[in-house]
């Protein structure tokens, strides 16, 4: 038998990797080769003796330092945000302490001076104008945003535009116009419905009411037609009867819409 193979076999025997059947095969092989038996016995006793080499038990200190290390790592990982705050704090603490104190001093001085000199009654008025200024500015920006969004190709963007329009306190003519264009021409039903909702905010304006009445005849979607009819009933808008009758005459009208329109006309009259 090849030397290496025998060495492997013996190690398998010694380390207990062999099952009973294979073990007895190995033992039988040794019996057949007495010269190997002697060597094996020596190896076997040394192998067994290794087990008896004493290894002390690790101290508690090892556990403590391990768990300290682990806890530190866990802490390090957990509150990244609070760590950042801490770092910021120490940053300001180390660099800006004198500056901060100086700043506070200046602020107190300023406040004191202001208090002593407060005699200017126009200050609140100025403040108010500023607030209204910012409000009008926001309105203007929002108005621009609505106009831009309504021109977008994506229905989602247009929806967003119509929603933004609903947030306006007072819509300009251009915006009303844009909303009507959307209501009458937008290919997406949802956008049209939301545009109608936004416009219903301004029904106090006669032009808007008129526009809505005219719009009835333009609509081809049953959903929008019904929504418009509902709105007209709520407004008790007599002039809309004509438009609704016009719509009723269309040959391709949906039955539900037909019933709804007839009902609405009766309600208004």
């Amino acid at each position: 038998m090849q030397q290496e193979k025998y060495e492997i076999w013996m190690m398998e025997y010694l380390s207990g990797e062999l099952d009973e059947n294979e073990k007895s095969k190995f033992e039988k092989y040794l019996q057949e080769h007495p010269e190997l038996q002697k060597e094996f016995d020596a190896m076997n006793s040394t192998w067994k003796q290794i087990d008896r080499v004493e290894v002390p038990v690790p101290s508690e200190k090892m556990d403590i330092s391990f768990f300290n290390m682990l806890n530190e790592e866990v802490e390090k990982k957990k509150p990244i945000t609070s760590n950042r705050i801490e770092r910021l704090k120490s940053f300001f603490g180390s660099f800006l302490k004198p500056q901060l104190a100086f700043g506070m001093l200046l602020l107190t001085l300023g406040l004191g001076l202001g208090y002593m000199l407060k005699s200017n009654p126009s200050t609140p008025a100025v403040k108010e104008t500023r607030v209204t200024d910012t409000n009008t500015e926001t309105e203007e920006v929002r108005g621009q945003l609505v106009l831009t969004l309504l021109e977008q190709n994506s229905a989602n963007k247009r929806l967003q535009g119509v929603n933004e329009a609903a947030k306006l306190n007072d819509a300009s003519e251009r915006i009303i116009e844009a909303l009507f264009t959307t209501l009458n021409n937008d290919p997406n039903i949802n956008v049209r419905l939301v545009a109608l909702e936004s416009l219903s905010k301004y029904v106090e304006t006669p032009e808007v009411r008129m526009g809505l009445v005219k719009s009835i005849a333009f609509q081809d979607s049953p959903l929008v037609q019904i929504a418009l009819a509902d709105l007209m009933v709520a407004l008790q808008e007599k002039t809309s009867v004509e438009s609704m009758k016009q719509l009723l005459e269309k040959p391709d009208i949906n039955n539900t819409v037909k019933r709804k329109l007839e009902e609405s006309i009766n309600h208004i009259i």
């Binding site: 492997i8 013996m10 190690m11 190896m43 040394t46």
Partner: peptide
């Protein structure tokens, strides 16, 4: 795995002779 076994065998043999 085989090489590991051969190495272990030879280490054991060396240990025996030092012993």
């Amino acid at each position: 795995e085989g090489t590991a076994k051969v190495k272990a065998h030879r280490a054991l043999k060396d240990l025996r002779s030092i012993f």
